[in-house]
Amino acid sequence: MNPVFSNLLSRIGPPLIAFVLFVGAWQAVVAIAELPTYLLPKPSDIVAAAADNWTHLLGSVSTTLIETILGFLLSVIGGVLGAILLASSKIVERSIYPYAIVLQTIPIVAVAPIIVIWFGAGIRSIVTIAFLIGFCPMLSNTLIGLNSTDKNLNNLFTLYNATKWQTMWRLRIPAALPYIVGGLKISCSLCVIGAIVGEYVAGVGGGQGGLGYAITYAAMRIQTPYLFACGLMASILGIAFYQIVNGLSRKWLGSWHESEMRGDHD
């Protein structure tokens, strides 16, 4: 057999078999025990529910996706710029950073209704909630990165009379990149959660309700199979989003940073 193929098979095979067995057992147990569908639907019911409402489901996914991306981009831009601002002055950092920490500890679900009152039901509130959840880890990670440059390199820049801005741009930001990427990975997952939570409280976003909205709607009507389908799509969305951010980070850092180097010797 082709070695590449057999390698792939040995990697993917076991989890694939486990998955098939799990789904099969689920289908069999529910069918044999004759559990009512509203309590625990069979996998086949879930697939059917998804297929019947395919256009709806896709619409919800794309709405949530757009909200997530918007919230994520805002939190990345806001977090990185905010951290650069804080890091460029010790006084500013010392006076503002404690509040950023406090902000981080506020349970966002608790303030979400206030945001809806301020921004109105709909996409603006949802994106704001996603942004708020993703912003804090971006800010604190970037700030830690900006403040953890190698002492010798710092000395070197001082020695050659670098301006504050040169040190920031040529030394502190590149040195912070691994931390920034760490922040991206945390905040991209959080933004998906933020968007869905936002839809719970702020309802319809954009033209059509997102996954969070579809979930609350299906739950009220006890459409359990569709509820499962929505939950599944939300998971897939979260995983896919995380993988994309992960891939981008490997591309950016791959050439020089250890955390993304997998024992390559070129």
Binding site: D150, N152, L153, N155, L156, P174, L177, W256, H257
Partner: peptide
């Protein structure tokens, strides 16, 4: 410096 002190990204 006693250590090479190079920027790893450059």
């Amino acid at each position: 410096f006693q250590e090479a002190t190079l920027m790893p990204w450059s």
